[in-house]
Structures are given as C-alpha cells and as structure tokens.
C-alpha cells in the first residue's frame, strides 16, 4: 500500500516540474514543504544530532521501530528545512536495507544540485550520507 522510494521520488519530480525550473518558485515551494515538516522535539536537537554545514545546521535523529527507521529532522534555515523534509518524506518508514540501497535520483532530476552542490554550505549532502550511515548501522545491528 505504501509507495516505494522510487515512487515518492517520482512524485516529488512531478511536483517540481510544475514550477518550470523557476528558481524563486522552487525556493518558495521548498519553504512551504519545510513548514509542513513535523516539529522535532527540542531535546533531539542536540549536538550529537547535528549535521553541520558551514552556513546552516541540520539536526537528524533516527530510531528503529518495528524494523523500520523513523527519521526526524530540522534545520535552522527555511530553505534547508524544505530540502530536509524531502529526504524525510522519501526515507522515513523504510527498512534499514531499503535506506542503504536507495538511489536518490530525485536530486538530479529536480535540479536540486544547485542547493546541495556545495556540501560545505548547507549540510544537506552530509545529511544524505548520515541517513545511509544510520541505515547501515541498523542493518548491522539487525544482522548481529
């Protein structure tokens, strides 16, 4: 019943394609998406959960519930928060192996490289890596 990782990504690609590559509209839409991200508990916004970029911060927490990873995330900047919400939408509620194996093709297709090209600046690239590391860690634990 739930959509696959690829299906959710295609949905996102469709949503952005309606914006016609317009940068202002894309940013505006990202901010809207960010506002809809479920709030992250303040105590989870700890230093341990920071994925640090040079200019904006991302907090990421992961828990394994009934064999699936629940991701919670937030950012101190509105645009990055929108980007973060996309990753949560795609990867939260998946098994560790699904997260590890995921191919995040939506980034290229939507043209979000513009936002994450400089990993230094917003920590999103680092966040994608961190989500996969959680996937690996949880699958190792399950296998042990």
């Amino acid at each position: 019943m739930s959509q696959s990782i690829a299906e959710v990504q295609n949905e996102i690609v469709d949503e952005f394609s309606m914006l016609d590559g317009d940068m202002e509209m894309s940013i505006g839409y990202l901010m809207e998406l960010g506002e809809q991200l479920p709030p992250m508990a303040e105590e989870l916004k700890s230093d341990d959960n920071i994925v640090k970029g040079c200019q904006s911060k991302v907090w990421l927490n992961a828990e394994l519930k009934e064999g699936k990873i629940e991701f919670e995330a937030d950012s101190n900047t509105a645009i990055t928060k929108g980007l973060v919400s996309l990753l949560v939408r795609i990867l939260s509620g998946r098994t560790p192996q699904e997260v590890v194996d995921s191919d995040l093709f939506f980034v290229d297709k939507v043209g979000l490289n513009r936002f994450i090209g400089t990993q230094r600046s917003n920590g999103l690239g680092a966040m994608m890596k961190q989500m996969k590391i959680y996937g690996l860690a949880f699958s190792a634990k399950a296998g042990a």
């Binding site: 940068m23 940013i27 040079c54 200019q55 900047t77 509105a78 645009i79 990055t80 917003n122």
Partner: peptide, 21 residues
Amino acid sequence: GIHHFDLGMWMDAKGIAVRTG
C-alpha cells in the same frame, strides 16, 4: 527572523549576488 543563508539564496534567485556567512 530570517537566516542569512535563506536571504542569500533568495537574492541569488533574483539574480543578485551577495555574500553570506
């Protein structure tokens, strides 16, 4: 109420190069 990173991205979307950080 607006992070400088967001400001910079919006400015760029409007064709304006400013520095942030």
